[in-house]
Simulated assay, not measured.
Amino acid sequence: MWYEVEGFVRRQLREPAQKIITPETRLEDLHIRSDDADHFVDLFFLRFGIEPGDYDRSRYFPVKGPWPVRLVRKFTSERRNGSVRVPLTLRMLTTAARLGEWRTESVERAERR
């Protein structure tokens, strides 16, 4: 499964073969920012048949909008969820592809191993 995920990432982001990409690579290391994240993740879920489950983009990417909106969302989101932003890695995407569904606890646990 890893090689399929790696190939998808390279094709979508036009990453050269000589660039080292590992399961530990974070999407932000590949210059995927908040604006591009939704589109990339949607394509990834579609390509690998992943149900969104409990996927919450604000857990992995900064909130969008004008700065006052971002500021309010940031603090209310962190208070409500009791969490801060988690880096989204290719290992997490690979785990979701294996599971066929985004299960935050399982996907993030796989990253910590």
Rank of each mutant, 00 (worst) to 15 (best):
Leu88Phe: 15
Lys64Asp: 09
Ala96Ser: 13
Val9Gly: 06
Asp29Trp: 04
Arg80Leu: 09
Asp56Gly: 00
Phe44Lys: 00
Thr76Glu: 12
Val5Trp: 02
Tyr55Asp: 03
Leu88Gln: 05
Thr76Pro: 04
Phe45Tyr: 14
Arg11Ser: 13
Pro66Cys: 02
Ile20Arg: 15
Leu90His: 07
Ile20Trp: 09
Glu101Ile: 15
Leu71Ile: 04
Asp54Thr: 10
Glu51Phe: 02
Arg80Ile: 02
Val107Asp: 06
Arg109Phe: 12
Asp42Cys: 06
Gly82Ile: 03
His39Gln: 02
Thr89Ser: 15
Thr22Tyr: 11
Leu99Ala: 04
Lys74Ala: 04
Asn81Pro: 01
Val9Trp: 06
Arg109Gln: 13
Val84Arg: 14
Val69Pro: 01
Glu78Lys: 10
Asp35Gly: 05
Phe8Glu: 11
Ser83Pro: 00
Trp67Asp: 11
Ser77Cys: 01
Lys19Ile: 10
Val63Arg: 02
Leu90Arg: 00
Val69Asn: 06
Arg26Asn: 08
Arg33Pro: 00
Val84Tyr: 08
Gly53Cys: 02
Arg70Pro: 03
Tyr55Lys: 02
Arg113Pro: 00
Ala110Glu: 15
Glu4Ala: 14
Pro23Met: 11
Leu46Thr: 12
Pro87Asn: 08
Glu4Trp: 06
Trp102Ser: 03
Pro52Gln: 09
Pro68Asp: 01
Thr76Ser: 14
Asp42Phe: 04
Thr95Gly: 05
Thr25Trp: 07
Arg91Gln: 04
Trp2Arg: 12
Arg10Glu: 08
Leu93Ala: 03
Ser58Glu: 13
Leu88Thr: 05
Tyr60Ala: 00
Val69Ile: 14
